[in-house]
Design a protein around this nucleic acid. Sequence first.
DNA 1: CATCTTCTATCTTATAGAAGACTATGCGCT
DNA 2: AGCGCATAGTCTTCTATAAGATAGAAGATG
Lengths: 242, 242
Amino acid sequence: MRSKLARPLPLYARAKQALMQKLGSGVWRAGEKLPPEPALAASLGVSQGTVRRALDDIAKANLIVRRQGRGTFVAEHTQARALFHFFHLVGDDGRRALPGSRMLSLKAGPATRDESQRLGLAPSARVVRLQRLRLLEGAAAIVERIVVPAALFQGLDVRDRADLPNELYKLYQDRFGVSVARAAERLKAVAASPEDAAYLGLRSGAPLLEIDRIAFALDGRACEWRVSRCSTHRHHYVSEVV
Amino acid sequence: MRSKLARPLPLYARAKQALMQKLGSGVWRAGEKLPPEPALAASLGVSQGTVRRALDDIAKANLIVRRQGRGTFVAEHTQARALFHFFHLVGDDGRRALPGSRMLSLKAGPATRDESQRLGLAPSARVVRLQRLRLLEGAAAIVERIVVPAALFQGLDVRDRADLPNELYKLYQDRFGVSVARAAERLKAVAASPEDAAYLGLRSGAPLLEIDRIAFALDGRACEWRVSRCSTHRHHYVSEVV
DNA sequence: CATCTTCTATCTTATAGAAGACTATGCGCT
DNA sequence: AGCGCATAGTCTTCTATAAGATAGAAGATG
């Protein structure tokens, strides 16, 4: 919302928008190589320096990866990326480990009011819900409740119940072409419900860290709502603040 | 830890280091204006473009503020900065408010093992400890325990007990020349101790969000250890993940 | 296997103009 | 003379382009 005159964005910002739009529209798939800088510059009608600035900006948001001598590539949801960018629970000894998963339930249905509001969907649009138990170093540590819009994930189905991979974001990207670009998390301390407690082997009322996350796709639309209730006896959530 | 040959850092990175060092050594005080780009470039023996890149990097870490037409200034710990960069508790309605403070205690003493380890001090170096109760919208919401190395804050004293300001980081900067540049936070859900519960008006054992933060000065040394135990009934901790 | 070439991104410098912010000047008016 | 105001000038950062040197990666060639 610019106040004075509607000044046009600087050229590099418009170039960035154009590139982002291409990324979002799936012109280049995950892991693919983008055209070299001079080619992009020519196709956008700007200088190489300008396209460079745009690419650097996008790389800073982890949407592309630049490798000297090789080229610029669309970011993939690798295990390492999941571990370092999207999973913030760390062992108290400082070691990071990706949690294992045990599927508890998967079913589809119309969205509740909360769900459609949080995901920005039409009232009672169809959603798919799943629940998982996640294991850290073998022990149950997180109860996870996930809601996704059915429209974005056509074909995600009860039949998938058995063989959903551990890393859902990679699945979203590979099978449905939905790349999670960023996420907003809200944390609270809550008391374990009797159900939570049973899953995690704690007494009811034990303090749990609740991570409430909305994940956004490249085009900015919300694509997942995930609530994770974590036991933080041997782990903690890390956050860097600058 | 670079693996192959010890390649020199690129010029802009060395320029950044040189500038950071000057910032850390207090050549320019908080709020002061840095020399214009061409002057800096000349003094460092690099081109204006290179110094620009270094300055942009530093600005991205919120250590300086650049204003077109006016100049480049050393960042100050304003209220807004405290609110947006260093205080992550937000009301469930989305509104941010800086908490008020009520001092509970302030005393000096030799560091415990934990304290000297977390702050990177010699064993049993002198530290100052303070405890505060913090209020959100008038209601007690956070119990805060703060430990700082006495060496960095010469003259911080029991006599200050009454009139310590709400925003400590501004005090650190203005009175002691210690600028908090970044911080690392570790979050856990814990059960309220009887003492916590009494301060916060909760029952003992209620779930609290514990924020354990080490703050680092410009030169990279730890300058504060702060543990905040927060009631998250009406508030939550926000975290953006890219 | 070693070397060379080619393609790529990265680094560095230089130049020019646009735009924001502040100061000083000068002009008209009272 | 003194006041108010527009304008010009100057200093600053910001934007944009260009060009060449550097360095990593890969394949072709000897």
